[in-house]
Computed example of a mutant assay.
Amino acid sequence: MSRGPYWTVLKGRKDGRISRANETINLPAPAFNVTQLIQSFAKRGLGVKELVALSGGHTLGFSHCSSFEARLRNFSNVHDVDPSMNSEFALKLKKQCPKSNRDHSAGELLDSTASTFDNDYYKRLVGGKGVFGSDQALFGDYRTRWIVESYAKDQSLFFKKFAASMVKLGNVGVIENGEVRLNCRVVN
């Protein structure tokens, strides 16, 4: 069993002295289409290949129903359920997330091997079992589908590209007048 990709984390990154929760509004939404995802990543200097590789981080994760329930009911004027979603998978999610859901902890793991860093996430996208619309969209768009398929077939390729993308991501948002923290959890 593989333990996942690894990469060298550069030392000396300058971070800001304050953190604001409202800055997370700039993160891509779970309902984004591929064009919106590409634009969001491009603002950070990241390309299509980094977008698809970093999305693979969803191999470890969980989502509450509120982030994907719009795909399950009244999706459009033509379709009740998102047609890109596997129909059996949609039924499973509907049972887990009933219309009058009072269980705020209800949701779904983002891949079936959620405690293992692997390429199952991509295999699920190929099978129409992406939880987020933004994830499933990666398989539905010609600009990203071929990358999803290549990672679904070759886990070592995914690991290599994920590690390279993490290094690139590590250089996003470096603050010129920031500080190199002695303890990453607190400002100096």
Rank of each mutant, 00 (worst) to 15 (best):
R145M: 09
R143V: 12
S156E: 13
T116E: 10
K92A: 08
M166W: 00
A137D: 14
D118F: 01
S115V: 04
V131F: 10
S84Q: 08
S115C: 01
L125F: 12
R102L: 15
K43F: 01
W146Q: 15
G127I: 00
V78R: 07
K153T: 13
K95C: 04
G57L: 14
P83H: 08
K43D: 09
G107C: 03
A53E: 03
K92Q: 11
D154R: 01
S63D: 15
D103E: 13
F62S: 11
V81M: 05
K95L: 12
W146P: 03
Q155P: 04
P83S: 10
R44Q: 13
A114C: 06
D103R: 12
K49T: 09
K49H: 11
S150E: 15
S100A: 12
M85Q: 12
S63W: 13
T116W: 00
F68Q: 12
E108G: 03
K95I: 03
L91E: 15
Q96E: 13
A70M: 12
V52W: 03
S67E: 14
L60T: 00
S105R: 11
V148L: 06
S63Y: 15
T113A: 12
E50V: 04
Y151I: 01
S76T: 06
H79N: 15
C65K: 14
F159L: 02
S156P: 00
D118N: 15
V78M: 00
C97H: 08
N77R: 05
T116F: 02
S165D: 08
D135I: 02
K161M: 07
V167K: 14
A106Q: 09
L60C: 00
W146C: 08
F132N: 14
Y121H: 14
S84E: 06
G128S: 13
F62N: 12
G128H: 11
F62L: 12
R71Q: 15
V52I: 06
L51Q: 04
A90L: 05
K94Q: 15
K153L: 14
R44E: 10
L93P: 06
K129Y: 02
D118A: 10
A163R: 03
V52Y: 04
T59M: 08
A90S: 13
R102Y: 12
F159W: 08
T144Y: 05
E50F: 05
Y142L: 15
F162N: 11
K129V: 01
G45V: 06
A53W: 04
A70I: 07
A163Q: 04
Y142D: 15
V52R: 07
K92R: 10
S156V: 07
R145F: 01
S134Q: 15
D103I: 07
L125G: 09
S115M: 08
D82I: 01
N74P: 00
E50R: 07
H58F: 07
K160N: 11
N119V: 02
T113G: 10
V126Y: 01
